[in-house]
Write a protein that binds this DNA or RNA. Structure first.
Length: 575
DNA sequence: GCCGTTTTCGGCCCGACTGTTTTCAGTCG
């Protein structure tokens, strides 16, 4: 059994939950949570680090004791401390803590007084009216528990894909902007950091005194429940179950508040520690020396007053960005949409796309691109009407014709070639060599073991006509887990063999993810940003890929399709 | 349990809102 970083992080989170319910030392609990975050955010596999005898205490929040416990979980899959805790209190109690409004104290009270350890017991007790009689509880808390248990059981609520979140966010912002006296309004939080999924929406605003902004917010037609309402902060649930927070701050604090509400939490904690080291205090109202505010109006002012340079929102994950600006090493010049000069993964009516080669080329030209690659599927993918050799030749001929009639734009002859189960490619080499480039992908047999799946892809990359590994993990956000694969091994092989990895910009995929983008950069393998567009407007999803690339610290120099066509052709010629 | 420009002990981010009380504990982000 292979232990993933997430497994280790989950074990530590459970330990922290149970210690919290027990009423253990809060700082010991925080230590377990910090270590869980550190392990969960590592770009390299902890099991590999251990087998290479690397010192785990080099990572923040990991000391001698926790390094030993990490090793214990990684090698045995279990942690003796957690087993011991579970003998004292039921492990399911940590599940109850996931219910909003229930923390360690309330869960502990319900367990000790009413022997409640599972959601169904909780629901029964709440329905029987037993909860509101407990000390510190009341009717509102009991009703809230009933609502939340019901909501969670319906699974109505989950992390939204960035594109879904946009669909809620944009009309709401337009609606709020119409209120009298509003000055600034911005969506902060993970949305601003361009995270692939968003748990809730954090909106930040400044407005004139007496503005009815807060009333307008809770009165929005899509609001199902007002969770809390105050003068500076309110929380609502939309009908879809999506949570939205609005915070109103004074103009003079706008930058500090934007920083605070953009997060991430880990980034904020780290920045506040720097403030403390300089005898300053940072909160959402500003940066203070004693009672005097020395910065707060803009984010740049706050960073500057702390002796740091501005950090782009996408980098604020406490994954080394603070050290980089603190030690003067500096941050990379991040990729922008303007850097992208072409899209190298596009489908047409030849297979499962909706538009013709000419239409897709026109759409790309309208977006300022210099080149595109037409990459329809190969025959193995029958469900898409994958092309056989004869059909592919017909398509290549049409591409030549369209090229002759298109100015300032080159259409590359390409294919999204299926990687078969045995690692061979779904087109003969004699045909592959006629193409300008290939985008190769796994589309079936996702369930292979990690070793077999890795071996399959590495064998495919041995083919001299293999150029780009498309959607390398195969994940579909909120729908399908990534298949098991040793990404570090694949990236090293790609680098040595002159292959590239795709960052698929489709908001359902965003594959590679941010952590793997950073890994690719460290290893030195080049990335290609592509949309996998099946229609003309599909080309517009490039911006999601750019956000993800920025989260992965990528600059234009790390991305192949920021190069000229001439340079690109050299990259794709492996012979 | 971790950590160190206050360094081997003593601190660890901090403010808003709710529901319960009646001055504050619990939870959240």
């Amino acid at each position: 059994m292979s232990i993933h970083n997430k497994d280790i992080a989950d074990v530590f989170e459970q330990v922290a939950d149970l210690l919290e319910i027990k009423g253990d030392n809060p700082f010991r609990i925080r230590a377990y949570r910090n270590a869980a975050r550190t392990v969960g955010n590592l770009s390299r596999n902890v099991s590999d680090l251990i087998s290479q005898e690397e010192d785990l205490t080099q990572y923040p929040g990991v000391g001698k004791d926790l390094a030993g416990k990490i090793e214990q979980v990684a090698t045995t899959g279990e942690l003796k401390l957690l087993e011991r805790l579970r003998r004292q209190i039921p492990g399911e109690l940590s599940e109850l803590m996931k219910i909003p409004g229930l923390g360690p104290k309330r869960v502990a009270t319900m367990y000790h007084e009413l022997d409640i350890s599972k959601p169904d017991q909780l629901q029964k007790a709440a329905e029987a009216g037993e909860i509101h009689e407990l000390p510190g509880f009341g009717c509102k808390i009991e009703q809230n528990i009933l609502d939340e248990v019901k909501r969670l059981s319906e699974e109505k609520y989950h992390q939204l894909k960035l594109t879904e979140a946009e669909q809620f966010a944009e009309p709401l912002i337009d609606y709020l902007k119409k209120v009298k006296g509003i000055k600034k309004i911005t969506i902060a939080g993970s949305y601003r950091r361009r995270k692939d999924t968003v748990g809730d929406l954090d909106i930040l605003a400044t407005c004139q005194e007496g503005s009815k902004l807060m009333d307008r917010f809770v009165g929005y037609e899509d609001v199902e429940k007002v969770v809390s309402k105050g003068q500076t902060r309110s929380t609502v649930l939309l009908r879809s179950g999506f949570q939205v927070d609005l915070r109103i701050v004074p103009q003079v604090s706008y930058g500090a508040a934007l920083m605070y509400f953009t997060g991430s939490k880990d980034h904020n904690i780290a920045v506040r520690k720097i403030a403390l080291r300089k005898n300053l205090k940072l909160n959402e109202y500003g940066l203070f020396r004693g009672k005097k505010r020395i910065a707060g109006k803009t984010e740049s002012h706050v960073y500057e007053a702390l002796g740091l340079s501005f950090i782009e929102p996408e980098l604020r994950e406490n994954r080394g960005e603070i050290e980089a600006v603190y030690n003067g090493k500096g941050l990379p010049d991040l990729l922008t949409l303007n850097n992208v000069r072409g899209d190298l993964h596009i489908h047409t009516k030849y297979t499962d796309g909706h538009h013709t080669i000419r239409q897709m080329a026109e759409a790309a030209k309208n977006r300022g691109y210099e080149y595109i690659a037409i990459t329809d599927h190969t025959k193995r993918l029958t469900v898409t009407g994958g092309l056989n050799v004869k059909e592919l030749h017909k398509q290549m001929k049409e591409i030549e014709e369209v090229n002759e009639n298109t100015k300032d734009m080159t259409i590359l002859k390409a294919s999204e070639v299926d990687i078969l189960k045995d690692g061979s490619l779904d087109l003969p080499d004699s045909v592959l060599k006629e193409l300008d480039l290939t985008v190769c992908a796994v589309h079936y047999t996702f369930g292979l073991s990690k070793e077999k799946q890795t071996e399959r892809i590495m064998k495919a990359m041995d083919n001299p006509y293999f150029n780009i590994l498309a959607h390398p993990s195969g994940r579909l956000i909120n729908e399908r887990q990534a298949y098991q694969v040793d990404m570090e091994k694949i990236m090293n092989a790609a680098k040595n063999g002159g292959c590239l990895l795709e960052l698929n910009a489709h908001p359902d995929r965003l594959d590679l993810d941010d952590v793997h983008c950073q890994m690719a950069k460290e290893i030195g393998v080049k990335i290609v940003l592509s949309t996998d567009a099946h229609r003309m407007d599909g080309l517009d999803t490039m911006r999601f890929g750019v956000g993800q690339a920025r989260r992965g610290w990528l600059g234009a120099e790390n991305v192949a399709n920021t190069r000229s066509l001439k340079e690109l052709r050299e990259i794709f010629n492996r012979n």
